[in-house]
Simulated scan of single mutants.
Amino acid sequence: MTRTVSTDQTTALTGIGAAPILDQARDRVLHRGLGLTQEQILQILELPDALLPAALELAHDVRLKYCGESVEVEGIISVKTGGCPEDCHFCSQSGLFESPVRAVWLDIPGLVQAAQETAATGATEFCIVAAVRGPDLKLMNQIKFAIERINRVVEINIACSLGMLTQRQVDQLAEWGVHRYNHNLETARSFFPEVVTTHDYDERLDTCRMVKDAGMELCCGALIGMGESNAQRAELAAQLAALDPHEVPLNFLNPRPGTPLAGQSIMSGRDALRAIAAFRLAMPRTVLRFGGGRELTLGDLGTREGLLGGINAVIVGNYLTTLGRPATADLDLLVELNMPIRELQKSL
Rank of each mutant, 00 (worst) to 15 (best):
P284Q: 06
Q40G: 05
T10W: 15
V287P: 00
F192W: 03
A103D: 00
H60P: 01
A329Y: 04
T207V: 07
N251Q: 08
D61C: 06
D107C: 05
G324M: 10
V314H: 06
M283Y: 03
A114K: 08
F90P: 00
I266L: 10
G225P: 03
L298V: 04
P193G: 09
L13K: 03
T198A: 10
L64R: 12
E295W: 06
H89S: 15
C127S: 14
G17E: 08
L42D: 10
I156C: 10
V29C: 05
V5K: 08
R294N: 05
L307V: 10
T2D: 14
D27K: 12
L106K: 13
R285E: 10
R189L: 10
V211F: 07
R26A: 11
A241N: 08
F192G: 02
I128Y: 03
P260F: 12
T11N: 14
L56A: 04
E117R: 15
I224W: 00
V170R: 06
D271R: 06
L337S: 11
R233I: 07
L36C: 02
L308R: 13
D107R: 02
A272L: 04
E117V: 07
L36V: 05
L348H: 14
D202R: 12
Q232M: 11
I76K: 01
T286N: 04
G215Q: 07
E125K: 15
R342F: 03
T118H: 10
R26L: 04
T286Q: 03
L296I: 12
C160H: 00
D202F: 09
T2Y: 14
A103V: 11
G15Y: 05
P245R: 02
M216V: 08
